[in-house]
């Protein structure tokens, strides 16, 4: 019960044959060596495995890899380069990664997490960062949340961020700095941020 799929991971097309039971998370980590998405609960409850698929934040632990044939997947490792045109990217080696990956500039959300000391052990952080990037896109589209006042345009205050990020758990409880980090990144991108 094996199927061949091609997934564009962090900008590079990757072809592989997977057992149909393989989740996207396991395919990324165990088959492709992309270890930034983390396996926390493996049941869709913690958000550590969050990636973007087609630009939207999803849980890779509850996604079968076979459903991602042809999909464009972005992990925390690929966030910074995502907006860069393909011909501006550096050379790609056999693993599909640029040799200068570690030197590459950080995404503004990643930079903000460092600036604001928004993590302790760091295990949930790649999922938090990817989730925040997806969340800010949803906010920019005007999507409401459960705490958005009826009919009003949402404002990016503490309650909105906490609600929109509730799918990402942090055992170190670094939430107190995660919210300001996301506010910083949003403000840098020109979003009006409320206290």
């Amino acid at each position: 019960m094996h199927t061949e799929i091609t997934v564009r991971v962090d900008g590079a097309p990757r072809r592989l044959t997977v057992d149909t039971r393989t989740t996207l998370l396991d395919a990324l980590r165990e088959r492709l060596g992309v270890t930034s998405p983390k396996k926390g609960c493996d049941h869709g409850q913690c958000g550590a495995c969050t990636v973007l698929s087609g630009g939207k934040r999803v849980l890779s632990c509850l996604t079968l890899a076979v459903t991602q044939d042809g999909a464009r997947v972005t992990t925390a490792e690929g966030l910074a380069a995502e907006d860069t045109a393909p011909d501006e990217r550096g050379p790609v080696d056999g693993d599909g990664r640029s040799p200068d990956d570690t030197d590459r500039h950080l995404h503004p959300v990643q930079r903000a997490f460092i600036d604001r000391d928004a993590f302790q052990c760091g295990y949930c952080t790649p999922g938090q960062v990817v989730s925040a990037v997806g969340m800010l896109r949803e906010f920019a589209r005007g999507w409401p949340s459960a705490v958005t006042e009826g009919g009003r345009e949402p404002r990016l205050d503490h309650a909105e961020i906490a609600e929109r990020m509730s799918g990402n758990l942090c055992r170190c409880a670094a939430y107190v700095n995660i919210v300001p980090a996301i506010q910083q990144a949003a403000a840098e991108a020109g979003t009006e941020v409320a206290g």
């Binding site: 869709g44 939207k56 849980l59 509850l62 949340s145 929109r164 799918g167």
Partner: peptide, 12 residues
């Protein structure tokens, strides 16, 4: 809809 699950799960 917004009271259910999380942002990631609602996208899926």
């Amino acid at each position: 809809l917004l009271s259910g699950a999380s942002g990631q799960l609602r996208n899926m």
